[in-house]
Design a protein around this nucleic acid. Structure first.
Lengths: 178, 178
DNA sequence: GTCTATACCCGGATAGAC
DNA sequence: GTCTATCCGGGTATAGAC
């Protein structure tokens, strides 16, 4: 079977715009990502952006695709390094998310723009966890929920200041082993 | 020891305003909760609201306090019904959250307005889970992360359509038992 | 590919009269 | 406790010239 993951190619200019959108998002958060601010950062006027993207949603969808791709890559790398290890996988996922908290939130705290994503990307992002759970989909979902929950609670500063989060991660990932 | 949880009392009118704010939020989501829309619903003009709350954040903080109080109550009820049962506790938490998804998100997807909450409320909300985990704080945090993760992934429609979420809940809560 | 001009809508908040 | 008038800011997006 041929590779089913397809990328809708962006023009070079659109790629540059997306890169600046990402930089803006990562530096200042989702509320700061406006078409005006994005244009300012590129040294152009906001209306010009609409020659490259149909609307703001399309820009955001591109960033969501980047998030899924990169966190999948991080997990695949962990898989190669420590095959079958749920703690290693969770650590890679956590590491990527905490390094890009605003992008992680953008991709995660709203419905997925599934129609605008490259085919197969969502499955690719889920696959390493399913493999680490020996194909047990229920366990993989529980492990995903734990991992995502830890990450977002960390990002939002929900744990008490002194909390030993490494210990919580260890307890969670070890408990959820198949 | 005396009860340490204190409530800053709202005036009757402020209570009514908060109730309408909540109704608006629960019906239409966080973006729909604006001072203008809130005033419309009350049959008054937006500036009048500022005689009762100093700003919009204060209204939102009141709703966050309601969320913490009510989900704590739901969990305490589950504790009485099935003492020490993590699955029962998680079920109560899930039930409350899915019945009030917008309020759950408002209280959860941003930093807690700790300064504006009744004293002791955050601890009260956390206590049932710590008790169910036999006082093991690391396990309690892992269980909270799992539970919160499942809830928000459900709310945002992140699981595949056919997914057996009951099975994932069972797997997760049973795995995380002390 | 970028511009100007502009339409259109939305938001939070304050001053001061009644 | 509510009002009117208002300020000031922000946002997405389109039309049409260059």
């Amino acid at each position: 079977m041929p590779e089913t993951t397809r990328e809708r190619r962006l023009t070079p200019r659109a790629t540059e715009i997306a890169a600046q959108a990402r930089a803006l998002l990562e530096e200042s958060g989702p509320e700061a990502l406006t078409m005006r601010a994005l244009a300012d950062r590129l040294g152009i006027k906001a209306p010009s952006l609409y020659k490259h993207f149909p609307d703001k949603q399309a820009v955001e969808a591109e960033l969501v695709a980047q998030m899924l791709t990169e966190s999948a890559e991080a997990c695949e790398e962990a898989e190669r390094t420590a095959p079958g290890s749920l703690p290693a996988l969770a650590g890679a996922y956590r590491g990527w998310a905490l390094a890009h908290p605003h992008l992680y939130r953008l991709a995660t705290e709203r419905p997925l723009p599934r129609h605008a994503l490259p085919e197969g990307l969502e499955d690719r992002a889920a696959a390493p966890l399913v493999r680490a759970c020996g194909g047990d989909a229920d366990r993989a979902r529980a492990a995903w929920a734990f991992t995502h929950g830890m990450v977002v609670l960390e990002i939002h500063g929900r744990f008490p200041d002194g909390a030993d989060l490494s210990a919580a991660w260890r307890t969670g990932t070890e408990s959820l082993l198949p």
